[in-house]
């Protein structure tokens, strides 16, 4: 397999450059991450984040042949030609494929990702019916990998002001949670020209989400809520794209 990987060492390089690699595939190379880990034996300076290797931690999010995805669940057999690996678009590059997620998490925190309920806590837990719990489907599964926001053009142009698909999907998750009682505040928080309304429903987010989530749809439902229209139905999920790059 031939790869072309973006390299950048802030102490040595003035800007990122592409480095070519070639590696013979062995029977154990099912996913791109398997190949990258063996590549690291060839070149120990190659830096990238990884952890769970099963698509639940979100660490190894990167641009794979122009489309964001998780290296650990991108099958090798779906990759054609020279595999071009680059860091997530628009996120500041710390080193090689490792990016600075500070702004991404700041936007997430700005939507207050916790339950707020001023009512006195009950004896046991705050109850929620199965139907109420189902409304969180399609939103709670987010692993905050950053694939969506870094593929969103609106987020590229205004990362400091536009919350981005990941943050907005979590805003939706708390807005529809029956145990949360500050819905009005949450909606007011998103009413300005930038926070939510930079979204143009381009849907790059849904295209690249490795968990098959659809932040664009959640954003539409938040808009409905702002107009006091209760959006019917929950969020769809789709089988994540089979890594067509």
């Amino acid at each position: 397999m031939k790869l072309s990987i973006s390299r950048y060492n802030p102490e040595l390089d003035s800007k990122p450059y592409m480095q070519d690699y070639e590696i013979a595939l062995v029977p154990g190379d099912h996913m791109l991450l398997d190949v990258m880990l063996r590549l690291k034996q060839q070149d120990s300076t190659l830096s990238f984040r990884k952890s769970c290797r099963e698509g639940v931690c979100g660490s190894d999010a990167m641009s794979i042949n122009g489309r964001n995805g998780l290296a650990c669940i991108t099958p090798v057999r779906n990759l054609r030609g020279t595999v071009v690996l680059r860091p997530l678009p628009s996120f500041p590059i710390i080193r090689d494929l490792v990016v600075d997620m500070t702004n991404f998490f700041a936007q997430y925190h700005s939507i207050k990702p916790w339950l707020e309920n001023p009512e006195p806590p009950p004896e046991k837990e705050r109850l929620q019916s199965p139907a109420e719990r189902d409304r969180l489907n399609g939103a709670y599964e987010c692993i905050l990998c950053g694939c969506c926001s870094s593929q969103c053009p609106s987020y590229w142009w205004n990362p400091a002001k536009f919350v981005g698909p990941a943050g907005l999907l979590q805003a939706y998750r708390f807005i529809v949670d029956s145990r949360d009682k500050v819905t009005d505040d949450r909606l007011k928080n998103l009413r300005g020209p930038y926070r939510l309304f930079r979204c143009r429903t381009i849907m790059n987010c849904a295209e690249v989400c490795p968990k098959g989530l659809e932040p664009s749809h959640a954003i539409e439902k938040i808009r409905s809520r702002m107009l006091n229209v209760e959006p019917s139905g929950g969020l769809d999920t789709h089988t994540p794209p089979p890594g067509r790059p």
Partner: peptide, 22 residues
């Protein structure tokens, strides 16, 4: 203290059909 670079070469980023519509 130097600002970190970013990858934002639009030619190196795939555009799905919806992005073209947009």
């Amino acid at each position: 203290s130097r600002a970190r670079p970013v990858f934002l070469n639009l030619l190196g980023i795939r555009l799905p059909v919806g992005a073209l519509t947009s």
